[in-house]
Nucleic acid binder design. Structure first.
Lengths: 204, 204
DNA sequence: CCAATGTTAGACCGTACGGTACGGTTTGAC
DNA sequence: GTCAAACCGTACCGTACGGTCTAACATTGG
């Protein structure tokens, strides 16, 4: 089988993603990964030199697959509340999806031991915060928001989005969030954000 | 018959705390724990029936040691901004302490596998949120804050406190936070919170 | 058809783990 | 002073891991 390697590589990464997200880094076993697709360890080690590098690539793929999505919602500075609400719902739905929740557990849990978090942060949260910051800067320049540090404002906005649901879902102290719960939480977060950062006397 | 056991038990828990916070649950080894105090495995297993139960008790002790502290700042409803600022600084300083940061990594990382998060959440975050909620309720009833759902407001307040520093510190994408950085971040968080939840036209 | 290459299955190596067993020693209560 | 409980040190058991290696099989290009 001289044929190309890309699809096999993908299959390995998919199986590895399952295993890592279910069992964590240490808990995941190479044998279990190859067992999931009927491949052999030899083959896996032909594509990836070690468990560590396989792990890093799995994480990077999860982030890249999910983080690019909700940018187009941040263009209409004429309707700040609407844009934030749309973006917030899309963002939080992704953030609370099973794959991203598993990713959060992994990256938090391994951040003491590994440097994977330092690798992934610029491609994940930092990127999102930068997009928000640009949007908020534009809105401030147009006088639609109170003038403030847009970087801090972006972090405050993201924190408010996470406030009600993220931690309980990740820690499994509540069931996964339904879509209407997400929308309601985003609504309250956007309200609080605009009350704090909107122009004086104006609400959402 | 040989004497008491409480100090030995404490010594084991201290060594276990070190080992778990440094290496995570799977990475920690019983042999290393007993090696830290020159004890023997037999002795450890006389005090704790398994690695799992030892782990749970270590986590519970960390929480109980740290979480009770900053309640007394939440009594003076006459000075809401000052109370929040004082409480916020104390809270965030604890939250960003090395032991609590390690705890966050542990509880997030193990929340997929173990039920320890469900056990600890009521003694940790939930308790803090309840205290804040009571304080906010009182402040609302006295007309010092806009009337809103105090539970949501408490979560928003806590999220704003975490917004700038918590994640970067836990993920080690920045150095640990200095006291003046913490105070400044709390200041911005309290400002944003009061701008959103204060009475109309009133700022901090 | 052949040679080269990719593949699978599984044995194998060294290591480390959680947990138990055992012999010998120290400690305290009586 | 006696005796039982607690202790240490270490060997041990069974298992599982990451990673390497061998050997048979499948698929391609020429």
């Amino acid at each position: 089988m001289r044929r190309k390697t890309e699809t096999k590589r993908d299959a390995i990464l998919n199986a590895a993603t399952l295993e890592f997200t279910e069992r964590g880094y240490e808990g995941a076993s190479i044998s279990a990964i190859v067992g999931r697709l009927g491949a052999s360890k030899q083959t896996l080690y032909r594509y990836f030199p070690s468990k560590d590098e396989l792990f890093v690539e799995v994480m990077a793929r999860i982030i890249d697959r999910h983080v690019t999505t909700p940018r187009e919602d941040l263009e209409d500075t004429a309707d700040v509340p609407g844009s934030l609400q749309r973006h917030g719902e899309r963002y939080l739905k992704i953030r609370l999806s099973p794959e991203m929740v598993s990713l959060a557990r992994l990256v938090f849990g391994e951040s003491g031991r590994s440097d994977v978090s330092r690798l992934l942060h610029p491609r994940g949260k930092l990127k999102v915060a930068k997009d928000i910051g640009r949007f908020l800067t534009a809105a401030m320049e147009e006088g639609r928001l109170r003038v403030a540090d847009p970087a801090v404002a972006a972090l405050h906005y993201l924190a408010l989005l996470d406030a009600e649901l993220f931690e309980p879902v990740v820690l499994r102290v509540r069931e996964p969030a339904a879509n209407d719960e997400i929308a309601a939480a985003v609504d309250r977060a956007v309200d609080a954000f605009l009350a704090g950062y909107g122009r004086e006397g104006k609400h959402a």
